[in-house]
Simulated assay, not measured.
Amino acid sequence: MDLQLRSKTAFVSGSTQGIGFAIARLLLIEGVKVIINGRTQEKIDTAVEKLKQEIPAATISGIAADFANVDEVNKLLAILPEIDILINNVGIFDLKPFADIRDEEWTKFFEVNVLSGIRLSRSLLPKMLAKNQGRIIFISSESGINIPEHMIHYGMTKTAMLSISRGLAQLTKNTAVTVNTIIGGPTYSEGVAGAVGQISAAQKQPVEQVKKDLMKTLNPTSLLQRFIDPSEIATLAVYLASPLSIATNGAALRADGGVLNTII
């Protein structure tokens, strides 16, 4: 299927690894010019080199910016070229009891996970509306609906994404611009792989056994019964980025492996 994405330009926040990297990779394969983002130039250079080795014809560049630093974000916005596809992916998470989460941690999580998408969308959506084409996609999580008891601050930010995305979609009536959200499930990113490796070493169990045990313990409602690969979320993101998805707008689409035990 031709997704009609050649000649488009995309910006993917938080894309030097994990889901963001997988989305950038698939967009490049579809002929999109991609600008990736990470906190440091070193991370960007490593990711760019890896992608160029796999996709020699790719047109890829990167802009370093820490979304916890508003000055760096403003500099990024000032140099971004015209963007057709915005993927609001950047995010942070950790496990912490509610009583131990300090005010500054709540602020940081909101700054990175929520205000990142607000600031990028505020800058880019008016330009998309002016030229009557564009895609904005938020990468949320099932944790925004099924709030984890030890990740309440993270879950709060993923719930906020759903509201912001739907609200922005209301501004696109009668245009060829769409705003949607992907509700991801438990994904085997580099961060998760690192944690699994530590558990494996501590318990002296094979990594695959640890992964199975974690799925049964933490995600018993999963229909997939395994961690999701980042590429499996990227596939949905790239379809939503294409002109073929014009009838999908203001939606929250699940790529959660069936973890959410709801019919909508």
Rank of each mutant, 00 (worst) to 15 (best):
Q4H: 14
L5W: 00
R6G: 05
R6S: 14
S7E: 14
T9G: 01
F11M: 03
V12C: 07
V12L: 08
G18R: 03
I19Q: 01
I23K: 06
I23F: 05
L26R: 13
K33R: 12
K33I: 01
V34L: 08
N37Y: 02
R39P: 04
K43L: 12
V48N: 02
E54T: 09
A57H: 12
A64E: 00
A65K: 04
F67P: 01
N69I: 15
N69F: 04
V70F: 10
D71G: 00
N74H: 10
L76N: 06
L76K: 06
L77Y: 09
P81D: 11
P81V: 09
E82M: 07
E82N: 13
I83M: 07
D84M: 08
L86A: 07
I87S: 02
N88A: 02
G91M: 03
G91Y: 05
D94Y: 13
L95C: 06
I101F: 07
I101M: 10
R102S: 15
E104V: 10
K108E: 14
F109G: 05
F110E: 07
F110K: 04
E111I: 10
E111N: 15
V114A: 06
L115M: 14
S116T: 15
I118P: 08
I118Y: 13
L124I: 11
L125Q: 02
P126V: 08
M128T: 00
A130W: 04
G134L: 05
G134T: 10
G134V: 04
E142C: 09
E142M: 14
I145D: 01
P148F: 11
G155F: 08
G155S: 13
I164N: 02
R166P: 11
A169W: 11
Q170T: 14
Q170I: 12
N180P: 08
T181M: 04
I182W: 01
G185T: 11
Y188C: 06
Y188N: 08
A193G: 07
G194H: 13
V196M: 10
I199S: 11
P206K: 09
K212G: 08
D213N: 15
D213P: 06
M215C: 08
T217Q: 15
L218V: 12
N219A: 15
P220R: 03
T221L: 09
L224G: 03
L224E: 03
Q225R: 14
Q225H: 11
D229Q: 15
D229A: 14
P230W: 01
E232Q: 14
I233R: 00
I233K: 00
A237P: 03
A241K: 05
I246D: 09
T248W: 02
N249K: 12
A252R: 05
D256H: 07
V259W: 07
V259S: 04
L260G: 01
N261A: 14
T262P: 00
